[in-house]
Write a protein that binds this DNA or RNA. Structure first.
Lengths: 154, 154
DNA sequence: TATTGTTATACTCTATAACTATA
DNA sequence: TATAGTTATAGAGTATAACAATA
């Protein structure tokens, strides 16, 4: 049969990525909720773990959110003992954030949740296809200035 | 050098897709704003064009949003002349939505914007990589019950 | 009584602006 | 005076619940 004219919106990467990304985030949100976290809390921990920033303002820049939001996110993470806030002695205006041991465990637990969510979300992909998709997303992430994941050590 | 332990969150598909999807939507939002539209307006037109739904309740189901939101989206699209609302004679409770000629033109214009946004967002990918990414996203979309784009006719 | 659409209301997320303390 | 962080406020987006019209 002759297909209708292909929808240029629906076949675009930005639109598809937007729709699927929202669904992926919904799934991830539901999973990390079990740990009392929102995706942005996890994102903050990821940024800290990657060593991409230490002060709250730097984190706001890396995450692309307002500094006031970092305050709220860090407040919660500190309350649950996932991060420590210490004033920089060299510049007492700066709050230096570091992951605690519990924070690293929490992040690792979120990693397991993410893997399990992946298994559900990308269940139709073969291992090879999954690897290809990850690599392509990595390329896009790099272009957007996001940290790229080091390749898994087999 | 020995890389640090790979971050399982950051290397997951759901997390990456969520972050990149949000950035893609931000870009798409900025582009379609030139036409006075939000991404969900475009999503509604895409659903109509794909023939996936006609009544507002069906559209709400397809889009995964509340029926009350469809009212607001349809209100705006009707106001700008992109869709028509007609009561179903067989069941006067149902509002049957159809794209007008202007709506189809508007959707086509959004398709051009999406293509241009793609060029910016995925500028680092070769044509082959782009095609592979689109195909993989298509697989994920199919699994999520979204309409799959028919392959482009070369 | 059940269903479609609509309206009214409330909630979540996040940014902007005002403020405090350090520099 | 300028900057890091904090607090207060406001806006966007969306859902839930109450309501109206039709079945």
């Amino acid at each position: 049969m002759a297909p209708v004219a292909p929808d240029k919106v629906n076949s675009s990467v930005v639109f598809r990525l937007g729709v699927l990304g929202a669904m992926a985030t919904d799934l991830f949100t539901a999973r990390v909720n079990a740990h009392g976290l929102k995706p942005k809390h996890v994102g903050l921990m990821v940024a800290l773990d990657a060593g991409r920033a230490s002060s709250q303002l730097e984190i706001a820049g890396v995450m692309g959110v307002a500094p006031s939001l970092v305050v709220a996110l860090a407040d919660h993470l500190e309350k649950v003992g996932a991060i420590q806030r210490v004033r920089d002695p060299a510049d007492r205006r700066r709050q230096v954030l570091t992951l605690t041991e519990h924070g690293r465990e929490l992040l690792a637990a979120c990693g397991e949740l993410a893997r399990s969510a992946d298994a559900e979300f990308a269940a139709d992909l073969t291992a090879v296809e999954s690897a290809v998709l990850t690599a392509l997303l990595d390329r896009l992430a790099a272009r957007q200035g996001l940290p790229t994941a080091p390749a898994d050590q087999p």
